[in-house]
């Protein structure tokens, strides 16, 4: 609802398909919702499920923009539904599940499996010499700026928007995407991770890794956390080229 104008009736067009149900056929279904002040797509979709169609599937967890569960295509762009205000959208709103990920039903996709596969392949954990440290002793000091630099890259919430927006990810099922490359960048700046560029090259030095990126920048355009994905990928590519030359 605008501050001055009358209440709008939103027409929300949603892709319906339940692969578990052999009788289900993919189709678009339209729901009408009276817009309310401060309404988000979380509020609108919950209202549709509770008052119009209880079989509608979608994923929300935190509904506060921090858990990354609710990525979906909103009028053609991947975004977090929970923090999308309907007042910023036209009356006709088209919602589709994120592409690339396995469809569970309607707007619900299996990002969990995709992210876990990627994490296992890239070994997205600190490879340190002492992972069972003496916890009674003072912690090892870290440069305060370095700690903030790591957090800057650690803010990724694995929502999958960068994958949905990525040309390579659509064509190449094993491409680790901006989410994967950003993780490598995060561990690369972490002094606790002892992997060098040569060993990182083994993980991302091919077309499923940093050389698969076509620099279309859909990732950087759609990242809800404004992560510096384009710079990180460009930087990593240069570092991986140097690592390859040093082999």
């Amino acid at each position: 609802m605008s501050e001055t104008g009358a209440t709008r009736t939103l027409r929300i067009h949603i892709l319906r398909y339940n692969p578990q149900d052999t009788t289900s056929k993919a189709r678009m279904q339209t729901f009408e919702v009276a817009e309310a002040a401060g309404m988000t797509l979380f509020v609108a979709l919950t209202e549709i499920r509770e008052t119009q169609d209880p079989s509608l599937n979608f994923d929300f967890v935190c509904r506060a923009g921090i858990c990354g569960s609710c990525g979906m295509m909103i009028n053609g762009r991947p975004a977090l539904a929970c923090r999308t205000l309907t007042k910023d959208l036209p009356e006709d709103i088209t919602l589709l599940p994120l592409p690339v990920f396995e469809l569970i039903a309607d707007l619900s996709v299996n990002t969990g499996r995709w992210m876990r596969d990627m994490a296992e392949r890239l070994e997205t954990w600190v490879h340190g010499s002492d992972m069972d440290p003496d916890v009674d002793a003072l912690e090892a000091p870290m440069d305060p700026d370095r700690a903030e630099e790591i957090y800057e890259l650690e803010r990724c919430i694995e929502c999958g928007c960068c994958i949905a927006a990525c040309g390579t990810a659509h064509m190449r099922p094993d491409f680790v995407g901006a989410v994967g490359l950003n993780k490598i960048a995060r561990f690369r700046v972490d002094p606790r991770d002892e992997r060098d560029d040569r060993s990182l090259y083994e993980l991302i030095g091919d077309e499923d890794g940093v050389f698969g990126c076509m620099t279309l920048l859909g990732c950087a355009d759609t990242c809800p956390k404004d992560l510096p994905l384009a710079e990180q990928i460009a930087f990593l590519r240069r570092k991986m080229l140097s690592a390859a030359r040093s082999v």
Binding site: W125, V126, G128, D130, M131, P133, V135, D136, A137, L138, E139, A140, P141, M142, D143, P144, A147, E148, I150, Y151, E154, D190, R192, D193
Partner: peptide
């Protein structure tokens, strides 16, 4: 609790540090 923070520090949590 201090042991938990220190273990997580070794495992990768980028705790803000004293300047």
């Amino acid at each position: 609790a201090p042991k938990a923070v220190r273990e997580l520090a070794a495992w990768g949590v980028p705790w803000n540090r004293v300047r």
